[in-house]
Amino acid sequence: MDAAFVIATIIKILIVLGIFSALAGFGTYVERKVLAFMQRRLGPMHVGPYGLLQVLADGIKLFTKEDFIPQGAVRPIFMIAPVITAATAFIAMAAIPMFPEFTIGGYTVKPIISDINVGLLFVLGVMGAGLYGPLLAGMASQNKWSILGAARTAIQFLSYEVVTGLSVLAPVMIVGSLSLIDFNNYQAGGVSDWLVWKQPIAFILFLIAGFAETNRTPFDLLEHEAEVISGYATEYSGMRWGMFFIGEYANMFTLGFLASLIFLGGFNDLWFIPGAIAILMKVFFIFFFFLWTRASWPHVRPDQLMWLCWKVLMPLAVINVVITGIVMMF
């Protein structure tokens, strides 16, 4: 049993690593296509049928590009920063139950690498620690744009971590557990049991904070081209730059899984759709939503970001927690 557990865990880790690295690459293709269609363009078309092999071409380019380290940079930290982003994105997935349990040849497989009972906090904490990647990259690059990106990372992380924490607090109070599996089981009774109906404000706040934490468009101040060239990634090239983006796309999928597990019913069967396909649909809708907003909404300024966080979102989150507490008490 013990040996089987170790082997099963290793296989699960390899599968998660492989699938999500590939999905991160495929995510860039989907992003380019969706953005192109929304802007009346075609997107990549030339490599492979409908440009499907563009990911491969990009990968070859990234891998064979010179691994350049600027002279004034702090070498070890400059080299380790992208690894932090990519690694934390995958570590965060360790505590996410991706699918319902299933059986292969008499062996029940739990599609979660490590079922710790504080899974939600673990995922959020490790995803938050992933912002050390941009921070260290920006500070080690010896470049003014980079250090501006790093400073923005610091403020964005410190403020939006608060909103994420407070927004999931209300659902945690209702469910009474920090385990994502408990969240899933709580919403087992169909669409009407979804937590998003009980906690709509928490859901919206969580999504907004998720945009800030995954560094996606309305809040992607860390590498806002118009203001700070490429922010923290200005000095990066080749695979080190690629690792930042694998981490970013993996984080988007993590956030998709989190939002669907906490608010949208998780991997429970949805009408006639089996649970595994239902959660995939939810995750891909949230992924699509990320791209959709990127095509539609403009960036915000850093001061608007802080205004939104501290004057709007945080008070709303606190009020939401208080009201939830009062309602639960009576």
């Binding site: 969706v34 192109a36 269609f37 929304m38 802007q39 009346r40 363009r41 075609l42 078309m45 959709w292 907003t293 095509a295 539609s296 909404w297």
Partner: peptide, 22 residues
């Protein structure tokens, strides 16, 4: 107002009126 923007981009995507010259 934010959703007006979302609607416009989604409609453009569904209408699939591509202007790219290959």
């Amino acid at each position: 107002e934010l959703f007006v923007g979302l609607k416009i981009t989604l409609m453009e995507m569904l209408r699939f009126n591509i202007h790219t010259v290959q």
